[in-house]
Design a protein around this nucleic acid. Sequence first.
DNA 1: CAAAATTATGCAAGCGATTGCGTTATCGGT
DNA 2: ACCGATAACGCAATCGCTTGCATAATTTTG
Lengths: 372, 372
Amino acid sequence: MPRLARNRRTSVTIYDIAEKLSISASTVSRALRGHPDIRQETIEAVKAMAKKLNYQPNTMAQNLRERRTKMIGLVLPEIQSSFYASVLNGIEEVAFQKGYQVMVCKSGENYQRELVQVYALSNLVDGMLVCLSEQTQKTDHFRHLKQQGTPCVFFDRAPENVAGHRVLFEDEALGFALTENLIKAGFRHIAHLTGPNYLKACKDRLAGYQKALQQYGLPDQPELVLSVGFGYQDGRLGFQKLMKLSPRPDAIFAGSDPIATAVVVEARRAGISIPQELGLATFGSDPMHTLLDPPVTGLNPKGFEMGSTAAQLCIQEIEKTGKSTRYKTEYLKCDIAVRRSSVKLSGDEQLIASYSRYLKSDTHGDELVYIY
Amino acid sequence: MPRLARNRRTSVTIYDIAEKLSISASTVSRALRGHPDIRQETIEAVKAMAKKLNYQPNTMAQNLRERRTKMIGLVLPEIQSSFYASVLNGIEEVAFQKGYQVMVCKSGENYQRELVQVYALSNLVDGMLVCLSEQTQKTDHFRHLKQQGTPCVFFDRAPENVAGHRVLFEDEALGFALTENLIKAGFRHIAHLTGPNYLKACKDRLAGYQKALQQYGLPDQPELVLSVGFGYQDGRLGFQKLMKLSPRPDAIFAGSDPIATAVVVEARRAGISIPQELGLATFGSDPMHTLLDPPVTGLNPKGFEMGSTAAQLCIQEIEKTGKSTRYKTEYLKCDIAVRRSSVKLSGDEQLIASYSRYLKSDTHGDELVYIY
DNA sequence: CAAAATTATGCAAGCGATTGCGTTATCGGT
DNA sequence: ACCGATAACGCAATCGCTTGCATAATTTTG
């Protein structure tokens, strides 16, 4: 059969180099990778010729031959939010160091799309990093990965019944801490606005919230918990619903940054002042929240670490030789950053002091932590 | 030679399907893609068997054979900033629609790393999208792409002497408009804090700034222009330098969002009030700036459009059959959003009214535009 | 000095999918 | 009943690279 018309990319191959030097392609191949069988002279000649012809190895051919692609897939709900962007940043950094490329796919918090993306990536990448969409309840697509032998590491939001490494926050403990912080600040009717409770992350955060209420002798009022979604719109609508209750909640524990932002915006619009009339804390770390008026209590940023840890685990799993695997769950150490949105009585230094174990240096602007 | 030990991924191939059905692999291949030569019966049998065996085509083999990968590479300076995140979002969206995967690489504003990334991607992707790093002055790596026949579309920051499609802002016009806005607000000593002036984008924005000064009869004071970099630290240091001048500038035109954010933070720390003592406008669109106190004048967000437009151009270029190409530069329509940071006299409705042609609905909170 | 060991290279079989062309049935037409 | 047309499928080459094994050339060893 005749060679395909080289419509695009008249690429130089090892055969071209071989021909020029009157040697075989296998020798060229070995020379280029410094195989000890090949004479130093030959190696140099080959490399020189390769440079001269501007040879670039055909990655696809290598991939096919080597049965690996040096690519890892990433499926995440959203790209624009500060948190996921920083996760991606962490992943990219590690991948680059280890010579991997990152294929980014967003699910858009949509289960169907997550499904499509996972399948599309599955026969293309060596390993995968996944944060579940807020809609995801079925997890067959991940079992397909297992079956295929593609390592998959979950981060931030992980399924409960799928084997694999995980990198997570201490959802319950942090949910507890954020809620406790509001309680100690004097808030008593604390609402919780978050994602669907079939997600383990949400369940755990909610559990932390409830535990805090209980521990401080506050009633658990189900109407104060809205488990809808992580988005800005979810936050907006949730806020409006909450503000119609009577008595109105006097604080909100937001399950994500977009939710918290929505609360800030809507409260401002409604003329409700934070924190005097409404306390606020977020399970998030968008740097924006340190600059708002008032700055919003939340978590210290760990997105980069989450991404880099997950990527490391994944690559390690890809490259390991042994077959037995003990899957592990890494909980990222993360502490909360108390800011004015949860400090009811401005100027009450006593109160602020009592939180000193949480206090981060950015709280009062002396050492504002702002990362670009 | 014996088959390679199938260490990983015991994948099902068309040969497996063929064997099960006692037909040839070529028939399977044709059946799967619905070739008219193949009988309907056979097609169905093959598809059924494929599903039963959970067959997934080997993308690498296809890639090799088809001499294309259905992947596009993206090289950008930074991922975390809101603007580039939204660009990526736009790219991903279009790529997904058209069946392409996106490989994301960040240069970290580092020329060397940009170089490495471009070369690594060059023999892997069908096309590439690039935003230059702030260090990039040489552009040989892009000529290498041309030579290889890999389409490359530049966005936001493009080299001057490389052929290719571009998607850009109207840098000069917007630089003019933002500066003019400050002038009309009554500011007279307007500084400009931006990236290096060997970047065309910076040159153009600077030109717009100077043109505005000139048009309004203001002196062009070179010491007020600091062309250092786009980062937060650049902004911080630049701000500190500017504040040491006497007379001190009474307004700053920031060349990027991180710079503007740095100005806000540093001004707050230094007890300089915006806009009373210092006007501020940014060549950026981070939604954060709509929520700060005061909200910062800037551009309306066009990152998504920039990304999607660039991706469309790139894919179109990849898939076009003809060879002749007229490279085009698309200028994104983008208008400025005047906010309080550039409205010197609060309450001066007269003044605000005079900007009505710029005024966006988010300016006073009635219709705050906030996109997640 | 012949045999064994070493060194340096070539041959050819894959990796999995695609496809031009050849081959075998099947069928209608006269 | 014979022939060309059509339908349905198989063969084998190919994409570019890697690598086990064979081979040829050179050196070492007894």
